[in-house]
Amino acid sequence: TEYKLVVVGAGGVGKSALTIQLIQNHFVDEYDPTIEDSYRKQVVIDGETCLLDILDTAGQEEYSAMRDQYMRTGEGFLCVFAINNTKSFEDIHQYREQIKRVKDSDDVPMVLVGNKCDLAARTVESRQAQDLARSYGIPYIETSAKTRQGVEDAFYTLVREIRQH
């Protein structure tokens, strides 16, 4: 089974770092803004072998026109913010609204991801993020692309959301 996953969120929150940590098991430290990259990885989730087709997208506003296209083809979405960047957390709402509009559905598989949880300088409390996820009816997972904490959990949870859909 193949799953088309799309990673969305503001610029600099760590979308590529999360994806590369999942696929290649290493942490990319330097920031190089993405336009669009796709990665494929075969994994076993709950005993089922599946192929993850992951689209890593641009957070930069100037590429926002490309969003409709990949939102149409994606089956599930990782909505990523950084726990030390309140603005990126506030941006999640717009991504969710755009996904709902493009998919013409209120019920699209999504996982809210709070990345950079290895950093002490948190400005978005776990509780705020949990409340937001609960209001959307989606899971919330904290990750660190640096330490790998929660990385597999985030992507695998999204696959489970798609399966249950």
Results as ranks from 00 to 15, higher is better:
163 R>V: 06
65 A>W: 01
103 K>R: 12
120 A>M: 10
95 Y>R: 09
20 I>G: 04
59 G>P: 09
93 H>W: 14
57 T>Y: 00
136 Y>Q: 10
146 K>N: 15
158 L>A: 05
161 E>C: 06
64 S>D: 14
123 T>H: 09
79 C>A: 10
126 S>M: 13
40 R>W: 06
1 T>Q: 07
36 E>G: 04
98 Q>R: 15
70 Y>M: 15
46 D>P: 03
86 T>D: 12
8 V>N: 02
150 G>R: 06
89 F>A: 11
17 A>L: 02
125 E>R: 05
95 Y>T: 11
80 V>C: 12
18 L>I: 04
159 V>H: 01
161 E>I: 13
52 L>N: 01
156 Y>D: 14
136 Y>F: 11
147 T>L: 10
141 I>F: 04
103 K>N: 06
1 T>L: 08
140 Y>I: 05
24 Q>F: 03
134 R>Q: 12
33 P>R: 11
93 H>F: 08
163 R>P: 04
151 V>D: 06
67 R>W: 12
105 S>Y: 11
115 N>R: 00
124 V>Q: 04
99 I>W: 03
40 R>C: 11
11 G>K: 15
39 Y>M: 02
122 R>K: 11
52 L>K: 03
120 A>H: 12
71 M>W: 09
113 V>P: 03
6 V>A: 06
44 V>H: 13
76 G>N: 00
23 I>L: 15
161 E>F: 09
139 P>H: 12
102 V>E: 15
26 H>I: 09
52 L>F: 10
136 Y>A: 07
29 D>I: 07
30 E>H: 10
40 R>G: 07
147 T>K: 07
150 G>E: 12
22 L>V: 14
59 G>Y: 01
56 D>P: 01
42 Q>M: 08
42 Q>N: 11
85 N>Q: 04
161 E>V: 08
94 Q>M: 09
118 D>P: 03
50 C>R: 07
158 L>S: 01
31 Y>F: 06
165 H>T: 13
149 Q>E: 12
65 A>S: 10
12 G>T: 14
160 R>W: 09
39 Y>W: 07
80 V>F: 04
107 D>K: 15
109 P>F: 05
91 D>A: 15
45 I>E: 04
135 S>R: 10
88 S>I: 01
6 V>Y: 06
108 V>S: 03
93 H>I: 13
23 I>N: 14
112 L>S: 00
22 L>N: 15
48 E>W: 05
76 G>C: 10
35 I>L: 13
118 D>V: 02
27 F>H: 03
95 Y>V: 15
141 I>L: 10
126 S>T: 10
82 A>W: 04
123 T>C: 09
164 Q>G: 15
19 T>D: 00
24 Q>C: 14
40 R>T: 11
165 H>I: 15
46 D>N: 11
76 G>S: 05
56 D>R: 00
23 I>D: 03
163 R>C: 10
70 Y>V: 10
62 E>P: 03
86 T>K: 13
5 L>Y: 04
127 R>Y: 04
158 L>C: 07
136 Y>D: 06
55 L>P: 01
65 A>C: 11
137 G>P: 02
55 L>T: 09
113 V>N: 00
26 H>G: 13
98 Q>K: 11
150 G>L: 09
129 A>H: 08
88 S>V: 07
97 E>P: 00
75 E>C: 09
108 V>G: 02
62 E>N: 15
10 A>F: 12
136 Y>V: 10
126 S>R: 11
124 V>W: 05
23 I>A: 10
116 K>N: 15
79 C>N: 06
141 I>A: 06
151 V>E: 01
159 V>G: 01
109 P>W: 03
27 F>P: 04
29 D>V: 09
154 A>N: 01
131 D>I: 03
18 L>M: 13
49 T>S: 14
106 D>W: 09
39 Y>H: 01
61 E>C: 13
48 E>P: 06
20 I>Q: 05
71 M>G: 02
100 K>I: 08
127 R>H: 08
32 D>Q: 07
109 P>S: 03
97 E>R: 13
18 L>A: 09
151 V>P: 11
144 S>T: 11
12 G>A: 13
155 F>R: 01
105 S>F: 11
129 A>R: 02
21 Q>K: 09
44 V>F: 04
163 R>M: 11
146 K>R: 09
126 S>N: 07
164 Q>K: 11
115 N>Y: 00
108 V>P: 10
144 S>I: 08
21 Q>W: 15
133 A>V: 05
129 A>G: 15
126 S>G: 11
100 K>G: 05
68 D>V: 00
11 G>Y: 10
32 D>Y: 01
17 A>T: 06
155 F>Y: 11
17 A>N: 02
152 E>C: 10
37 D>H: 01
16 S>E: 01
35 I>W: 05
99 I>K: 04
102 V>F: 10
70 Y>D: 10
26 H>V: 09
34 T>I: 02
160 R>C: 09
137 G>C: 01
3 Y>G: 04
119 L>M: 14
163 R>W: 09
149 Q>R: 05
120 A>Q: 06
163 R>D: 09
163 R>A: 08
133 A>C: 02
85 N>L: 05
19 T>S: 13
46 D>C: 06
34 T>Q: 03
70 Y>G: 02
128 Q>F: 10
122 R>Y: 10
82 A>N: 14
67 R>L: 10
144 S>K: 07
25 N>M: 11
76 G>F: 13
164 Q>N: 13
77 F>Y: 14
121 A>E: 05
130 Q>F: 14
20 I>V: 07
85 N>S: 09
2 E>V: 04
57 T>C: 01
131 D>C: 09
28 V>I: 12
140 Y>L: 09
54 I>F: 05
121 A>W: 06
74 G>N: 02
122 R>A: 14
64 S>W: 14
15 K>G: 01
160 R>G: 07
66 M>W: 02
60 Q>I: 15
153 D>K: 11
27 F>C: 04
118 D>N: 02
4 K>Q: 12
99 I>G: 02
92 I>T: 01
22 L>I: 08
5 L>F: 07
155 F>V: 10
155 F>N: 01
160 R>F: 03
149 Q>K: 05
9 G>R: 03
121 A>P: 14
163 R>T: 09
96 R>A: 14
129 A>W: 10
11 G>D: 11
101 R>A: 05
155 F>M: 13
66 M>L: 15
53 D>Y: 04
71 M>R: 07
19 T>Q: 12
110 M>G: 00
163 R>I: 13
58 A>Y: 02
30 E>S: 06
108 V>E: 00
83 I>V: 14
49 T>I: 08
141 I>N: 03
136 Y>W: 10
17 A>E: 02
97 E>N: 14
135 S>M: 13
11 G>M: 10
70 Y>W: 02
153 D>F: 02
116 K>L: 15
91 D>Q: 15
27 F>K: 03
56 D>T: 01
154 A>K: 03
94 Q>S: 13
154 A>W: 00
152 E>A: 13
143 T>Q: 06
1 T>W: 09
161 E>A: 10
27 F>V: 07
23 I>R: 05
94 Q>K: 15
47 G>P: 08
142 E>R: 04
138 I>M: 05
82 A>Q: 08
131 D>R: 11
131 D>P: 03
6 V>W: 02
133 A>W: 07
20 I>K: 04
37 D>Q: 04
106 D>P: 10
160 R>D: 04
60 Q>R: 15
70 Y>L: 15
129 A>F: 12
148 R>F: 14
159 V>A: 06
74 G>Q: 05
144 S>W: 01
155 F>K: 02
27 F>T: 04
12 G>C: 11
139 P>N: 08
18 L>Q: 01
122 R>P: 12
64 S>K: 11
140 Y>K: 00
47 G>K: 09
107 D>L: 10
119 L>K: 11
150 G>Q: 15
69 Q>S: 11
165 H>N: 11
87 K>T: 07
148 R>N: 10
88 S>A: 12
100 K>H: 09
84 N>I: 09
101 R>G: 03
82 A>S: 14
17 A>S: 03
162 I>D: 02
52 L>W: 06
9 G>A: 04
63 Y>F: 05
42 Q>F: 13
104 D>K: 11
103 K>V: 06
98 Q>D: 14
165 H>C: 14
76 G>Y: 07
156 Y>V: 12
164 Q>V: 04
102 V>S: 11
86 T>L: 13
6 V>P: 00
153 D>H: 09
41 K>A: 09
95 Y>A: 12
161 E>D: 06
78 L>A: 05
11 G>V: 11
14 G>S: 00
33 P>L: 05
9 G>L: 03
132 L>D: 03
68 D>F: 09
19 T>C: 07
89 F>T: 03
49 T>F: 07
38 S>Q: 05
142 E>D: 08
17 A>M: 07
87 K>W: 09
57 T>I: 11
127 R>K: 12
54 I>K: 04
41 K>L: 08
137 G>V: 04
94 Q>V: 11
86 T>R: 14
68 D>A: 03
95 Y>Q: 08
42 Q>L: 07
35 I>H: 06
